[in-house]
Design a protein around this nucleic acid. Sequence first.
DNA 1: GTCTTCATGGCAGTAACTGCCACAAATAAG
DNA 2: CTTATTTGTGGCAGTTACTGCCATGAAGAC
Lengths: 216, 216
Amino acid sequence: MTTEQAEASGARRGRPPESEEQRERRRLAISRHAVRLFREQGVTETTGEQIAHAAGVSERTLWRLFRAKEACVEPVLTTSLDDFVAVLRSWPEHLELDEHLRSVYAVDLTPSDAGTVLAVVRLTRDEPGLRAVWLVLHERAEPTIAAALATRLGLPVDDLDVRLRAAAVNAALRVLTDELAWAVADAEVTTAALERHRDRLAETLRTLTRRPGGAR
Amino acid sequence: MTTEQAEASGARRGRPPESEEQRERRRLAISRHAVRLFREQGVTETTGEQIAHAAGVSERTLWRLFRAKEACVEPVLTTSLDDFVAVLRSWPEHLELDEHLRSVYAVDLTPSDAGTVLAVVRLTRDEPGLRAVWLVLHERAEPTIAAALATRLGLPVDDLDVRLRAAAVNAALRVLTDELAWAVADAEVTTAALERHRDRLAETLRTLTRRPGGAR
DNA sequence: GTCTTCATGGCAGTAACTGCCACAAATAAG
DNA sequence: CTTATTTGTGGCAGTTACTGCCATGAAGAC
């Protein structure tokens, strides 16, 4: 039996590959260790060996899970973006985005990780490598934002207007998350701060996501 | 005479430091070599040693001028952003931004470098390191954009609304430049393509930069 | 049990930088 | 001109961030 046939029929024979979710969970666990070390001693002062050791994994597998040292913060940072994207996906037809946001977007960030995410965002100000990761992650989320807007506006996903709106939404999310990160500084993340953040976001997105022509 | 006194009085004593413009010109010259090599053989296949040798400089001084291999494309890429920022700075009070753009923004890009810049932008699609540089450069231009908008709107530069608009303008510029880069592909950059680009940019920025309240 | 596939860790190697130092270049003062 | 002073340059050693290769263990199907 050739390999192609084995793949064609669902007949799997050896050890099954690790599930995507499991892999992501492992990456997230390592990511937390990396973030802690980066906060404690700075990025350049933290070596890959230290991260690997702290996470209880060999340096070799660390480089298999992350292409670069700075990429170790990706899983923590994406929790924030994923939450926002999830809200977009659940956007019902009969609501404007700002209304939907105010109703379901309780926290913008998984509460348990909110402080950690915002701490990393603050780190990105002085660590150029981390800033680059933050920006790349944001841009990576843009097609998903565009997809949501496209269905909403009844336009193709690659429509230029859709992409421009998605980029604007994305930029607003970035600026406001930065603002939130520095507003809370190193203090505890309060519900009030998160609500203020959510309301500002809703207000900004309201004008960006309206259907052209005004009336529904 | 102590050092502080020497600095306080303008009495300089040794070899004068290189001017900022001269340094930038040298960086740009090296940048063109790096871009050529990156296009010919890919980023990972190009070593710092090759770039340094091609530019006629030692590897040591290459690393003094650029913090990382990927940063070698910065000077070429910034020519494009600088042109746009220059237009913003010359924005007169009596015009809307789209009108101003259509009147002075002849090419968006220094003609001599337009093709090179757009080639690098296309490279950023598959080279994550270069994409990160492109995004970081864009964000670095944001405060300048915000400053122009702030004077225009009569608001402080750190005002949140100003920063949000600047980010949106910035995002639009990025999306449209990407679009232009792929529209022209590897063909010669035509005037028609550049005009279409400029008009789309003007159209998009029109709504983003209007003074609130409608009437002038 | 065997066979197959997948993940890990170790080890060697390369490339990307950094620190240090000696030297050349450029200018002012004597 | 010589001397003193400051700045840029190149060479070399050293560290760190990775990559390729291989042997080994783990997790299933048969």
